[in-house]
């Protein structure tokens, strides 16, 4: 079972993860489920979505451009790390936070490991869906005391 850390504490995940274009999506949205959709599905449904309830998850090579006009209304953007050594998600996070001003929850998911949490936080992630084998106590400690670059990570436009 994967642990979720949000804003510095272990939290319950009240989002439902949707991997592909599944049936009855609209019905589920209308019934009030909090869904996180892959980008393509999110784009297909965005005209009917209920902003506070629908999140979107991105793969490391998904483009951000399509999201930008709606960014202010999206409550959750999750970025998938298929492997912890795939650093593309770090750039996506910095772009969303620093350039495009995203202020909602920004979550790292999938191969998310204790030893990278501090660096992820520095790039702008504020929530972490840990890989199932990662110990939550160590993760919390890493977020508080983890090593960070002292060079100011510039609030780039």
């Amino acid at each position: 079972m994967s642990t979720l850390i949000r804003h510095g504490t272990v939290a319950d995940d009240d989002w439902q993860w949707i991997e592909g274009d599944v049936t009855q999506l609209v019905e589920r949205m209308e019934a009030g489920e909090r869904l996180v959709l892959p980008l393509a599905v999110w784009l297909a449904h965005r005209l009917r979505r209920d902003p506070p309830r629908v999140g979107v998850w991105l793969g490391p090579d998904d483009p951000l451009e399509a999201l930008l006009p709606w960014l202010a209304d999206i409550p959750l953007v999750a970025i998938r790390f298929p492997l912890f050594t795939d650093g593309r998600g770090y750039s996506l996070a910095r772009l969303l936070r620093c350039r495009y001003g995203y202020t909602g929850e920004l979550r790292a998911v999938s191969d998310v490991l204790v030893d990278q949490l501090a660096v992820m936080a520095q790039c702008g992630f504020d929530s972490f869906g840990l890989r199932a084998d990662q110990p939550p106590a160590e993760a919390l400690a890493a977020l508080v005391g983890g090593l960070r670059s002292p060079w100011p990570v510039i609030a780039m436009p």
Binding site: V119, S149, W151
Partner: peptide
């Protein structure tokens, strides 16, 4: 050197 040391965006190129 200072900028690139632990530059968080670029540790997994």
């Amino acid at each position: 050197r200072q900028w690139s040391t632990l530059a968080p965006e670029f540790l997994f190129l």
